[in-house]
Design a protein around this nucleic acid. Structure first.
Length: 127
RNA sequence: GCGGUCGUCCGGGCAGUCGUCCGGGUCUUGAUGAUCCGGGAGGAAAGUCCGGACUGCACAGAGCGGGAAGUCCCCUGUCGAAGGGGAUACUGCGAACCAUACGUCGCGGGAAGGAAAGCGCAACAGAAAGCAAACCGCCGGGAGCGAUCCCGGUAAGGGUGAAAGGGUGGGGUAAGAGCCCACCGGGUGGCGGCGCAAGCCGUACCGCAUGGCAAGCCCCUUCUGCAGCAAGACCAAAUAGGGGACGAGCUGUUGCUCGCAGCGUUAUGAGUCCCGGGUUCUGGUCGCAUAGACAGAUGACUGCCCCCUGCUCCUCCGGGAGAAGGGACAGAAUCCGGCUUACAGGGCGGCUGCUCCC
RNA sequence: GCCGAUGUGGCGGAAUGGCAGACGCGCUACGUUCAGGUCGUAGUCCACCCCGUGGGUGAGGGUUCAACUCCCUCCAUCGGCA
């Protein structure tokens, strides 16, 4: 079937209460480029949030770059992920990383968190 | 040909696939979803250093305080003094000249009203640092055998300092001194000339008198209410009218005062504080834009081309080929204008250095 | 986004426009001790071998005879807000 890799507004966590819920119930998986927090979803949707404040970098262009890398990687992996809620937090070295490296590491972390099959973690989608 | 510097402009291009934000159309739906079309970061979007628009503070009022501008002309904008260009006073460095003070030429700086309203400051050194004074010295007189001492005159010479009350030469004198004279410098007002003007040049007069610092306080002229889109407006939701203490004034607009407005004034008590409780997804819409959100839209991947770097290979020494790495500073958040700061590489123009050819 | 504050040796923190590094902590060396601590003495910004000289108060300009101090422009850090 045609599994379109789209990213909709309702796929994003927006409210502070939703972020608090994930951070309270979730389990952290830390990598070189990012930290992923995986939590069970109260509804039947895969939803994701990105935390990228001034603590990450004082330069707005670097924060935007990190946020785009995380959203794009999540978009590519989204059809394979089982129902859950996610929070993604960038780490400093992500500034010098290319997009496929970030996607590969995110797939590994999500597999470790139990929401992604191993086959996808071994060979993540390229585009 | 290779640089340097100043000004100015650009700051990767094309094609494909996937994706994202806003607006509109069509189909469908209870919300929505699907699809098509159009639009979607910068020269600095940055720093927030200035000026405005806009919004609120009852009226946007008065006084004090505070802040800002302050040589001249032109330009842009404005209610207004933000900003830019050019010029002038003044000033730093260098050069020629040179006895000194000045002055001349070249390159730069140039936030420049008032120090003959007032107050204040000047460490150390020095005799003396602001109504001039006299350490060494010079000169005259006196005392003493003498070394030297005393009295008086002087400010040319020495020394100190960032700064010591015009400079050079001559006359004059006991020695000296603008004491007098010549030239130079300076001064304010007068006259003449040039310039739109600041100002510059010349001339007559003045013997030279009150040195520096106002980016110390201050004075003068002129301008100036305060806050900022987290301004501000509306909607939704909730409401209690509880207990205790204090209590005559309290609240609102700017640092203060006045004025003004509202509430209250012996209490059935305005208001303040504490305890207890309710509501709120740190709610939504407008403000808000021919980009425009509120977990924050411009991206990812592929191919070709362009530029740079070093490597390997080929060469007819002009260059060519291959694979690799790199392509800056940086991301709108109410808007507009200016300033400042960051920035790989490139285009054009001016000035200029070196080298080669004719 | 808007508004505001601060910056001095390794650290905390003084300094009317007039010798910058007071004072405290830390560090180093020496003495005391069998050894360590305590205590005492000396040193402790940077450059040149010592002396001495020069440069230094976040950076760069300016005013002044003279600047940590006054003025301007940047940089960095830290606060506040419906």
């Amino acid at each position: 079937m045609i599994t379109r890799k789209r990213l909709l507004k309702e796929d994003k966590l927006r409210l502070k209460a939703e972020f608090d819920q994930v951070r309270a119930e979730g389990i952290k998986q830390a990598g070189r480029y990012l930290v992923a927090v995986v939590a069970p979803a109260p509804d039947e949707r895969r939803r994701c949030g990105v935390i990228c404040g001034r603590k990450f970098s004082l330069l707005a262009v670097r924060r935007n770059r990190a946020r785009r890398l995380l959203w794009e990687s999540f978009r590519l992996l989204k059809p394979e992920i089982s129902v859950c809620r996610l929070i993604l937090i960038p780490r400093r070295p992500i500034s010098r990383a290319k997009r496929p490296e970030v996607t590969r590491e995110m797939a590994v972390l999500l597999h470790r968190g139990g929401v992604l099959p191993e086959s996808v973690a071994d060979s993540p989608p390229a585009c």
